[in-house]
Design a protein around this nucleic acid. Structure first.
Length: 554
RNA sequence: GGGCCCGUGGCUUAGCAUGGAUAGAGCGACGGCCUUCUAAGCCGUAGAUCGCGGGUUCAAAUCCCGCCGGGUCCGCCA
């Protein structure tokens, strides 16, 4: 897999080889004391009841250094490996040569990532965009890893909430002063309130659902119009987040194209469905039975979703869904049924909820903070910071937008998906030490390079031997780009990549403070310029994977 | 009630899969640094019973058991 495509992975591979019989990857660790550490001596110590350090020293005798493995030591039972000058030099040169391709892997396969998929009954709120940002970041990283990736937004156009939305729009109209998805949410909130006081409306809701499922033209037109308009608003929001889906797949499509019937038929053929009015499936390992068809003959969400997965599975090698953790049980049931049918199961990335200090959000109750509101407040905040700088007005707007979007994306992606988040306006609008820090570091690197060119000294020449500790630390970090790409692909935790990019920026700033570049003697200047340029490339490519614009000036 | 997730300095968080070297960052606080390549920056100081209690181990934030607190699910909703 890693020919010349992944520097640090290559180093790791050579560490494994240098350890020969002891080269077990499971005992290799990242370390603050070395470029790579093996804990194998502790393992053996347990079996042989001898001191770890003694064993480590014995193993050390047998270690054979490699091109990239420059030195090795046995310390406190650890076997510590250090990269060679060749490794540092090859890393920098490889980054400079690869440029925008640096960090790529050559993994193969096609992947479908489904994410966001919020009901089109209102605008995206700050919970939905956690989904969008995780999904979009995974998409970018999977592409970098070499996969052929497509993204889909699964549009839930069939549910009860859509019937209500249609009725709401009909009864209360649409406020044309508002962004369209917000206007639709208002109608949806009003009809919910109305329904509480007029329960007899329930009949109309059911009637509408039945007609839509049957495909009555007039009803279909009504649904289509409302859904499409809501999606227009949602797409606009996603665009501001640098998120774009390849396809929008409507749930109702699977009623019309026969896949729902196909799924039901297959389950029925296996005698798995109990029919007593409703169609019910019992799954032994869940105490809950699954309804696939209501007594009135209409299907439910999971029935259509099964059909969607059957369809997806036929077209793509690997399926990834990003879902809120409230769907955990649902996801397991869905997977179980797909398994029974011998169909491809999705890998599901669950993320915990974003809640408000006063509790959880609800579109229906109108209790939510919309993504749009947050986005525009961030633009304003960012604009205020730069309003007095020497940029023209358009450039200020552009920078404010890039910085605002970056802060938002980074704040969401940096947190491990399984951690619950509580939204806090003050923190959300704080630009200190977040994505803008990384953007700033990138702009700083660009600025040094611009000045170098301006003063006619653009030559780059990295020399391993003259590396200081900080330079070495920075170059080692730069070499790990694809190592983190691979980790995200394996672990489906994009937050580890966000942390990596931040580390690069932090270390670069440390370097910046202590290592004058343009004022240095010619050898050192060329050496450091090479480091600056390589860092610039890593930061730019890293930001790209986070869906954040790498500004050259700010 | 049962299932799943979370609980690490005042706040946010990494590390937990595969147990090992002084628990790593950031914000906030305090004190410093702009005649030097972008101060959206840098340096330093203070601040942690890793929710609690047991257990396994030479070694536990990490594994096991019990508990506490928070979230979430358990619809002929989506």
């Amino acid at each position: 897999m890693c020919k010349q495509v992944a520097m640090f992975l290559k180093f790791k591979q050579q560490v494994v080889e240098s350890l020969k019989d002891y080269g077990d990857e499971r005992f290799l660790r990242d370390s603050e004391h070395a470029d790579m550490s093996s804990t194998i001596a502790f393992k053996i110590s347990k079996e042989e009841k001898r001191k770890p350090q003694e064993i480590a020293e014995e193993i050390l005798e047998k270690v054979e250094l490699k091109e990239y493995v420059g030195s090795v030591e046995a310390l406190n039972g650890y076997i510590n490996f250090f990269a060679s000058y060749e490794f540092l030099e090859d890393t920098i040169n490889f980054i400079l040569d690869s440029d925008e391709n640096y960090g790529s892997l050559d993994l193969k396969g096609d992947v479908l990532i489904e994410h966001t998929s919020a009901n089109p009954d209102g605008p995206l709120h700050i919970g939905h965009i956690r989904n969008s940002i995780i999904g979009d970041t995974l998409t970018r990283i999977f592409k970098k890893a070499g996969f052929d990736v497509k993204t889909q937004y699964y549009v839930n156009d069939m549910g009860r909430q859509m019937a209500l939305t249609v009725l709401g729009v009909e009864r209360f109209g649409i406020d044309s002063n508002l962004k369209i998805d917000h206007a639709i949410a208002n109608a949806y909130i009003q009809i919910n309130r109305f329904l509480e006081e007029n329960p007899e409306l329930e009949e109309k809701v059911e009637d509408l659902m039945i007609k839509y499922e049957r495909g009555e033209e007039e009803v279909c037109n009504k649904f289509r119009e409302v859904v499409e308009r809501a999606l227009d608003g949602i797409k606009e929001t996603l665009m501001n987040l640098n998120v774009k889906h390849d396809e929008y797949i409507w749930e109702s499509e699977f009623i019309r194209n026969g896949y729902v019937d196909k799924v039901l038929r297959e389950l029925d053929n296996n005698n798995l469905i109990r029919k007593n009015g409703a169609w019910i499936l019992e799954l032994n390992e869940f105490e809950k039975e699954v309804v696939l068809k209501r007594e009135n003959g209409t299907t439910v969400y999971i029935t259509r979703d099964l059909a969607y997965h059957m369809w997806k599975g036929e077209k793509f090698g690997r399926l990834i869904n990003v879902l809120g953790s409230d769907h955990k049980l649902y996801g397991r049931q869905l997977s179980k049924i797909l398994e029974i049918l011998g169909l491809k199961q999705p890998e599901i990335v669950f993320f915990e909820f974003v809640s408000l200090p006063e509790g959880s959000m609800s579109t229906r109750k109108g209790k939510f903070i919309s993504a749009d509101e947050l986005i525009f407040k961030l633009y304003d905040e960012a604009y205020n910071i730069i309003k007095d700088r020497e940029f023209d007005e358009d450039e200020k707007r552009r920078i404010a937008k890039a910085v605002g979007t970056a802060a938002l994306r980074y704040d969401f992606i940096r947190i491990a998906p399984e951690k619950p988040m509580t939204f806090d306006w003050k923190k959300a609008l704080d630009f200190e030490n977040t994505a803008s820090y990384i953007q700033y570091s990138h702009a700083r690197a660009c600025s040094i390079l611009r000045n170098a060119v301006k003063h006619g000294m653009p030559e780059l020449e990295f020399v391993g031997e003259i590396c200081s500790d900080v330079e070495r630390k920075l170059v080692m970090l730069l070499s790990k780009f694809s190592y983190y790409v691979l980790r995200v692909v394996n672990e489906l935790r994009p937050n580890v990549f966000a942390e990596y990019v931040m580390n690069v920026a932090t270390t670069f700033n440390e370097f910046y403070r202590t290592h004058p570049v343009l004022k240095a003697e010619s050898d050192y200047r060329m050496h450091r310029l090479a480091i600056v340029d390589a860092t610039r490339i890593v930061l730019r490519n890293g930001l790209e994977l986070l869906g954040i614009e790498a500004l050259e000036k700010m």
